[in-house]
């Protein structure tokens, strides 16, 4: 894989628990990915804006405040609006199993609960990126206009 995978690690909302986000950010960085950490107290809008601007492959959201249902659905909707659904959304935090299932159905790629080894997150992202590059015509398109093409190619699994 020639190009480095770019990941935006975000802390949306008012939740100040940043231990997990920082540990995951450091682990992804040490695994060779390019990591952008947003810092705390971001709005969903600013996270999506940063993700599009930075042309990331993955957004990882850490939520321990109980606001996960609201925040994930907002981020997914904003990505749709920006025609940027090629960006994979994943997350972690204090999330009941039932909500995890609902969120995964909603379009969140994967949720990693407490106790997940960081290597599992790294492997999962690598596999997804690999699956992407397997498909024909995977050249990353820089211009925003052409994003629609990528939308269709988006995860159907």
């Amino acid at each position: 894989m020639g190009k480095k995978i770019r990941v935006l690690v975000g802390k949306p909302g008012l939740d100040g628990h940043d231990r997990g986000a920082k540990v995951v950010a450091a682990a992804l960085r040490d695994a060779g990915m390019e990591v952008i950490y947003t810092g705390l107290h971001q709005t969903c809008e600013s996270i999506v804006e940063a993700a599009v601007q930075e042309d990331v492959d993955v957004i990882g959201l850490s939520i321990l405040s109980g606001a996960h249902m609201t925040i994930f659905s907002k981020v997914l909707n904003l990505l749709k609006k920006r025609h940027a659904t090629q960006i994979l959304v994943i997350g972690g935090g204090i999330i009941p199993l039932e909500d995890m299932k609902k969120l995964e159905k909603m379009g969140v790629g994967k949720l990693f609960g407490p106790g997940t080894p960081t290597t599992e997150i790294v492997d999962w992202i690598n596999e997804c990126a690999f699956a992407k590059t397997e498909q024909p015509k995977t050249k990353r398109v820089k211009a925003k206009k052409s994003r629609k093409i990528k939308v269709r190619r988006k995860r159907k699994k």
Binding site: L14, T43, S65, G66, A67
Partner: peptide
């Protein structure tokens, strides 16, 4: 709750969902 911890009212836009 988080809005209270940050001195925000329940109807503040940042409080939505929290």
């Amino acid at each position: 709750d988080f809005p209270t911890l940050y001195g925000r009212d329940s109807d503040d836009s940042f409080s939505h969902g929290e």
